[in-house]
Every structure is written in structure tokens, then in C-alpha cells.
Amino acid sequence: MARYTGPSCRLCRREGEKLFLKGDRCYSDKCALSRRESVPGAAGNRRTKVSNYGLQLREKQKVKRYYGLLEKQFRDTYDKAEKMTGITGENLLSLLERRLDNVVYRLGYGASRKEARQLVSHGHFLVNGKKVNIPSIRLNVGDVITVKEKSNSSAKFKELAEKAATTPKWLEGNAEKLEGKLIALPVREDIDLPIEEHLIIELYSK
């Protein structure tokens, strides 16, 4: 499956804000954005006026990078959101939040979405009792995510079992059992990311 394999900190610098792609490092003094705020590249310090199209493009790129998607995956998700009833921008964010790798991250099983994606790919989780290793699978209300019994004994998951993660209200987590459940569809006010989804809609509507 195609994925970005370059330096994560470069993406944060390009967007000019923390995307929290490297877990705890993003909260420390080692964060590249804290030490060097300029945009990557030779023209990084050059000030240019950003057009409306530029603003829309940057917002789309930022959201893609938050969730770890490439263009085709993101466009497919947008097309699905557009066909759904309701507000397209809110549908888009709801679909992105319900990806398995994001749900694993939201439950506290990964320090970042990137790590959560890797854990899913390595087959550490069950969905409704069945092994799943595809990060892009979209969960529905009632689906139960469980850490595999063989994975419970690893140091990482033992540590997770000892602490309760703060989960959004559309998820129900059980740290002791290393289990989570999707109890409702995420709505716009549940998503704590600084996203202006209307800019993405404007971009794709042209």
C-alpha cells in the first residue's frame, strides 16, 4: 500500500503547524518546528502572498498529512462524503475519523497515527473478533476493536493496560481489557483538529 516514507517533521514545517506525527517528540524541545519554523527548501524564508487557491490547497494537504493519506485515498474519501446526505465537509471528517488506524490512535494504542497504522498493519488488532491488518478499513457503530491475545504480553500493550487513555465521546475504551468500541458516529464538535473543511470543499468543487 502506498504511503509517505519521508521525514515527518518536514511535513509539519511545510504546513507551519504541529501535525503531531511523531507522538511524544512533538510535545518536547526536540520538535523540529519549535527549533526551525521556516518552510523546507531554498525559498523557505521568502515571504509570498498566498492566493485563495493556495489556502485551499494547503488546508487539503494539512488534513491529508494529519491522517496519513495520499491524494488518491483522500479524493476517494471526499467523493464518498459528497454522495452522503448531510454536510460534505463534516461527512469527510467523520469518514476519516472512522478509519481503523485513527480509531486505534484515538483509543490510545499508538503514540501517533503513523505508529497506530504500523500496529494495525502488523496484525495486532481484532475487529469484531476477526484479525484485520488493513489500516484504511472504516468502522461502523457497534464495532469492537480488541488487541490480539498474543500481543497482550508485549511490553507496549502491558504499559497501555496500566493507564487509561482519554478517548473522544464517540468511542468507549476499556484499558484493562485493551478493548474499544465505536458507540456513535463522530460529529464535527468531537474532532479537535484545527481544520477548515470548507476550504477543501471549495477546492474540489472547482
Rank of each mutant, 00 (worst) to 15 (best):
E71Y: 05
E179T: 09
V187E: 14
A32N: 10
A184W: 07
H122N: 12
A165K: 03
I201A: 03
E82G: 01
Y27P: 08
V141G: 09
S205I: 04
M1P: 08
E159I: 00
D143E: 11
S94V: 01
T5D: 15
K114G: 14
R138H: 12
W170H: 02
D24T: 11
E17R: 15
D143W: 11
Q56T: 07
E15H: 12
I145L: 10
A184Y: 10
D143R: 00
C26H: 00
S121C: 00
G6E: 14
L19T: 06
K49D: 11
V141M: 08
I134P: 05
Y78K: 05
L69Y: 12
N52F: 03
N45Q: 13
Q118R: 12
G68L: 03
E115A: 11
F20E: 11
Y66T: 10
W170M: 01
G173P: 11
P7I: 07
S136R: 07
Q118V: 10
E59N: 04
L96N: 05
I137F: 09
D101S: 05
K64A: 08
K206T: 12
E162F: 10
R3T: 14
V141W: 07
S112L: 04
N52Y: 06
D190R: 01
L95Y: 04
K206S: 13
K163V: 12
L55K: 13
R46T: 13
S94N: 06
N91K: 01
G6F: 05
S51M: 07
T167M: 01
T146G: 09
E17I: 05
E82Y: 07
F125G: 06
A2S: 14
G110W: 07
E82D: 15
V147I: 13
L70A: 07
N140V: 09
V187P: 04
L11V: 11
K114W: 13
I200Y: 00
E197D: 13
F74Q: 01
R117P: 09
Y27I: 11
V103N: 07
S38I: 05
F20Y: 15
L57V: 10
A175V: 07
Q118N: 09
R3N: 14
I195Q: 08
F125P: 11
V141Q: 12
S8P: 12
K148Y: 05
T5F: 09
S112Y: 07
K169A: 12
V127H: 10
V187K: 11
K130T: 10
A81F: 01
L171G: 04
Y4W: 14
G142A: 02
K18G: 13
E149G: 02
V120L: 00
G123D: 02
P40E: 02
E202C: 04
V144P: 04
I134D: 14
D101W: 06
A111V: 15
G86E: 10
Q118I: 01
K181N: 08
C12P: 06
A161N: 07
D192L: 13
K62Y: 03
S38P: 01
L57D: 02
F20D: 12
Y78P: 09
Y27K: 15
S112Q: 05
G173T: 07
D79A: 15
L57N: 06
K206P: 11
R188K: 14
W170N: 02
